[in-house]
């Protein structure tokens, strides 16, 4: 039992959060040779955060979120190839392209729930994957898109070989969109999403425009996923079909489950765990890294509903109880 309402206190920051962001900034100085993988971590954290908004907060189960990541990546690359090389507006346009698709299919898609929804979201991303594969004149097909480049960020910071600009640029987007998502889930709209997740039918009976709310959350999430995809394209200077693949959709769900669904920081913690474990496990044994990820996933699901953050929360509660009982 909590003394206050967590749901209505989401807007207040906890000082311990600063630690996370300091770690990300510290990475920049401490591991200059690992900035490339750190950039991937930040981008996937952003992508996982976009998924958390729909999966964690609105209860929309999807296995096709790569569709929006991929559209963002291709849009960014195509705009740059076409001559629009300013990175920030490029990323925003890419986000809008993804949001546009979500807004178009959302009203029909979100009438579904559970397994049918999973299947349809998978189908949508599979169709996009095949379409991108076939339209090789536009997307480069199997070869992907390369030979595009971007102007310096803010006109000041050129894209360096060692990836300093890439890392800070991606981190900037993550911080900005994190603040945005946090505002949204703390708002009355965010509370309504929680209600829909808990009991969709009942929300309808208190007069809530359920589908409208879901479409908005889904569109915002697609916008963020699109930006994550765009940043991926911008920092890698390369886009391949992989961004639209089912693996990408599944990876991001696994990251979120590992970190903790519906907790904002779950996405931010799950992405580094997944990517770093995968990286080092693959170095250790290139054939069996999946085994380690699988074991982690089982532990997270079996012992920590709520992922790593859930486990930490229960350890903290256990210490608090232990302290409480020792007091006279």
């Amino acid at each position: 039992m909590t003394a206050r309402s967590e749901l209505l206190e989401r807007h207040s920051y906890n000082p311990i959060e600063a630690l996370y962001w300091l770690l990300l900034i510290g990475t920049f100085f401490a591991f200059p040779n690992y900035l490339s993988i750190a950039t991937t971590v930040v981008i996937m954290a952003l992508f996982a955060l976009s998924l958390d908004l729909v999966l964690g907060f609105a209860g929309i189960v999807t296995l096709g979120h790569a569709a929006y990541f991929g559209i963002g990546a291709y849009t960014a690359a195509l705009l740059a190839s076409g001559g629009w090389r300013e990175p920030i507006i490029d990323a925003v346009l890419a986000g809008l392209a993804s949001a546009g698709l979500a807004l178009m299919i959302g009203p029909a898609l979100l009438l579904l729930d559970g397994l049918p929804l999973i299947m349809v979201t998978m189908a949508v991303s599979a169709i996009l994957f095949e379409a991108a594969n076939k339209a090789s004149w536009l997307t480069g097909g199997d070869d992907g898109l390369r030979d595009f480049s971007f102007l310096p960020v803010f006109g000041l910071f050129p894209w360096s070989v060692y990836g300093q600009t890439s890392y800070l640029y991606a981190l900037g987007w993550l911080a900005l969109l994190f603040v945005l998502v946090r505002r949204v889930v703390s708002s009355p709209f965010g509370v309504a999403l929680q209600g829909i997740r808990e009991n969709r039918a009942r929300m309808r009976l208190i007069g809530s425009p359920v589908i409208g709310h879901l479409v908005r959350a889904y569109t915002l999430s697609a916008f963020m996923a699109g930006i994550a995809g765009a940043v991926h394209a911008q920092t890698n200077k390369f886009v391949s079909l992989e961004v639209l693949g089912i693996d990408t959709s599944v990876d991001v769900v696994v990251m979120l489950v590992l970190g903790g669904i519906g907790r904002l920081y779950g996405a931010l913690i799950g992405a580094p765990i997944y990517i770093l474990v995968k990286h080092f496990a693959a170095e250790w044994n290139p054939y069996h890294w999946m085994f380690i990820i699988g074991a982690l996933l089982i532990v997270a699901v079996r012992f920590g509903y709520g992922g790593l953050l859930g486990i930490l929360g229960r350890i903290e509660a256990w210490f608090a109880r232990a302290r409480g009982t020792r007091k006279p």
Partner: peptide
């Protein structure tokens, strides 16, 4: 919140 029409507010803190 639904009755007062606040549930469409996306950026103000509910709390």
């Amino acid at each position: 919140s639904e009755r007062q029409g606040a549930s469409r507010q996306m950026f103000a803190a509910a709390g």
